[in-house]
Each structure stands twice: as C-alpha cells, then as structure tokens.
Simulated scan of single mutants.
Amino acid sequence: MNKTQIQHSLLLFLTAVIWGTAFVAQSVGMDYVGPFTFLCTRSFIGGAALLPVIAFMDRQKSEEARLEEKKPENRKVLIRGGILCGLALCFASAFQQYGILFTTVGKAGFITACYIVLVPIAGIFFGKRCGINVWIGVILAVGGLYCLCITETLRIGTGDILVFICAFLFAAHILIIDHFTPYVDGVKMSCIQFFVCGIVAGIGMLVLEQPDISDILMAWQSILYAGLLSSGVGYTLQIVGQKGLNPTVASLIMSLESVVSVLAGLLILHQTLSGREALGCVLMFAAIVLAQLPRREKVS
C-alpha cells in the first residue's frame, strides 16, 4: 500500500468515526425535536455544506468538462439520480431516527450495517452472483440479529424492526448511487439528495410534528454535527477516500462505523450491552467483514 492509499484509508476511517458517533448526535438531538424535524434541519445543513465544495471542484475542472456537464441530457441524469437518492435517503433515515427512539445507538449501528450484507444479495436480481462467503455472512448476520434483537420472551423490539427496515432502504440507496455515479458528479448528486431529503422530511415535520424554533436551538449541537460533519463532511470524505482504493477495502473500513457506534454509546451515553448483545455485535461484524472479502476466482 503506497502513501496515497494510506492517506485515503485514513480518510475513510475518519468517515467511519464521524458516522458512528453521529448515532449519538441523533439520539441526543431527539431529546428536543422530533425525528422529521431533526432529519429536515440536518439535511439542509448537509446540502449547504457541499455548495462551497462544489464551487471549488468546478474551478478545478476543464472548460470542456464543465460544458459536458451542462448538456441537457447529462443534467437530467444528475437531477434524476439526486431525486431518487434523496427519497431513498429520506425514508431510510426516517426509519433510523424513529428506531433510535426505542433502541440503543450500538444496536442501531450494527443493525443498520446489515446493508453491507443486503447489497450483494440484492445484486443477484441484477445478474450479479454471490460467493459462498456472502451466504455464510448472511447466516452469521441472522444469528447476530437474533442475539441483538430477540428478547428472552422471543419478542422483537419496535426500534429493532424500524432500524432493520432502514437497513433495507439504505441498501436500496447504495444501489441507486452505484447506478448513477458512473454518469454524474458524485458530490453534486449528494448535494441534490440532501436538499430533496430535507424537503420531503420538512413535509413530514409539518404534518406529523410541531416544530418549535426554541427546541431546534436547544438541539443545535447535535443537528450541526449530524448535518455538517456526518452529512456534508462525511459524504465528501467518502467520495475522496474511495478514489484509488479497492472498493472491498473501502467498504470494510467504512463498516467500522458500527463498532464506533457501540463505543460511542458506551463512552458518551453510558449505554450498556448484555453478554448476549455483545455476542450479537461480534457475529454481525464477522458477517460484515466476511461479506466484503473478494471471491476467489476459479482457475481454468
């Protein structure tokens, strides 16, 4: 691994730390505001944070590249991708926000990380085969979820169900991004998705909640962290850090957000895990790592 790859790996690790600790910000912020209010405000902050990044990157592009992006057909693809990503992100984040109200940030982090196992499985429907390591990972993930979510009375918690739905929606979000990023500027599409997410969440906020500016100001630190760092900085670091790295290695590094979420919950919120839940975390992390291992090609 050369110096540039090491630097990019460190950027992705920083991304995982930011995303993992954002679970704490989400939990604390909702002590003051509703899930849609939190999601709406953080999304607009995230979108606004990317505007200067886009302006800077545009100045680095050649005139030919800028003219290519301005073509109507290319702009339509960018807008379509941003809208679809924004809708997927909004619904995924909404289920996650509501789920965190009823479960710990550590469990939420690991259950959300199921998307790393779900994505290759979903790829089967698009003609992409899964290796044996993925199927073993699925079995481990099911066992991990059982330890994390099923209580001694065999009842699944409401928060666990909501976060598990969120994992499916984040898997869809990743597949949408995978489809559009070869054709569009990833940072611009992220910016559009944040504003779309903010608008849709804003509708939910006005219909289902009673937003109050004083409550929003009480939660300003959590909202700013989730919006500026988790959304704006986190997604930008992901895009920059993934360049020049094997996508398998990149995904593996970013999956550490689930571990960070547990540590953050323990250290900051003083939340605890039972031995059974700790075993679930170990099984889930093993599943995440195994699902990302490259498949060995057959030698003809």
Rank of each mutant, 00 (worst) to 15 (best):
V77P: 01
Y115C: 12
S43I: 02
L39R: 02
G99W: 00
L50W: 02
S93F: 07
G99Y: 01
A55W: 13
L51K: 04
T104G: 11
L101H: 13
I116R: 12
I45D: 12
C40F: 04
E63H: 14
F36Y: 11
V117G: 03
S93H: 06
G99P: 15
I121Y: 07
A113M: 07
A108E: 08
T37M: 05
V105N: 12
A48H: 04
K70I: 11
A108T: 04
A108L: 00
Y115P: 09
Q97A: 12
G109F: 03
L118S: 06
F91T: 10
C85D: 03
K71I: 13
A92S: 15
V53R: 03
S62Q: 10
Q97V: 06
C40L: 00
A48P: 05
A108C: 06
R42A: 02
I79H: 05
P52R: 06
K71F: 13
Y32F: 13
I54M: 12
G81I: 02
T112A: 11
Q60D: 06
E73R: 03
F95W: 07
A48I: 13
G109V: 00
L101N: 10
V105K: 07
I100S: 10
S62G: 15
Y32M: 05
A108H: 04
T112I: 04
V77N: 09
G34W: 04
V53T: 01
T103R: 06
T103N: 03
E69L: 10
G46T: 00
R59K: 15
G81L: 02
I121V: 14
Y115R: 15
V105E: 12
L89V: 00
L84D: 02
V105M: 11
I54K: 02
R75I: 12
I83Q: 05
T41I: 15
E63Q: 15
I54Y: 05
C40H: 02
E68F: 05
L51E: 02
